[in-house]
Amino acid sequence: MTEPLLSVRGLTVEFPTRHGILTAVEDITLDIMPGEVLGMVGESGAGKSMTGNAIIGLIEPPGRIARGEIWLKGRRIDNLPPEEMRAIRGRRIGMIFQDPLTSLNPLFRISDQLVETIRTQLPMSQDAARKRAIQLLDDVGIPDAARRIDDYPHQFSGGMRQRVVIALALCAEPDLVIADEPTTALDVSVQAQIIDVMKQLCAERGAAILLVTHDMGVIAETADRVAVMYAGRIAEIGPVRDVIKNARHPYTEGLMGAIPRLGENLERLQQIPGAMPRLSAIPKGCAFNPRCPKVLDRCRSHRPALSPTEPGRQVACWLYDGVTEA
């Protein structure tokens, strides 16, 4: 078995507040293999963005990683000094944010932002960096890149802007790209194109993707494996095909009740009654128990741990307790 590119072990992110400590993300354990696409789904507030931010080392204070470890290519990165972590950002791990409208500095030309990023990451002359920038824009499918490169962000449409953002994230050919809802802010008509461009470019460069999205359709078409998040924890993780066809966790089952076609939004199709609890009011036992149709007695008092049910598959649910022992 090859070594995972990224390995997250027991990651816990906390926010100290006036009313005590909130745990936004708890005990996340997952691996991403080189070149693999790991999808991540879950309702709003489930901790998806927080997980991505923790991996790239950009949690806003006062939030902090309270427990757990993050390893990249066999090197522990969650406790690096700021300057060393900065050297990893952009170079080893790239990030694509949700809204291309706000991800680009409006006062700088696209060329300035690209060249600046390239030269920060790679030893290159101004001219060489500019050539590379044009090539990148061409790769992400911006027509007439050599001419458009000196435009300002507001001169591009939303979809084109997100292509620029992808080009920026891929400047230094990172090993891992974290894409946090890369199409949510875009027009439905261009969402599929953006996902395609991103997936294709990452595949060409051998980069793995952590793809956060609300859109099960995107996961189904793009990801190799999927992690389902609920209330800051992983409810279920496994190969996309298996999870979709044969959901184990009752929450996943609810999500898969109807798989929307590409572009349709998960929230609209929400079939599980009730809402995810706020961080300050996560129920005792299994966090899903007030909404769970299959709830057992011990679900209300004891929290199920994420445990393997079959090879490559893990579920945090009492229904599958003992499956492994059996």
């Binding site: 900065r86 600046e116 990451q121 953002v165 994230a169």
Partner: peptide, 17 residues
Amino acid sequence: RTEYIRFARARGLSQRA
């Protein structure tokens, strides 16, 4: 606090830049 500053951080630009 804006997104483009967060994105600049995510691209690994130096604190000074």
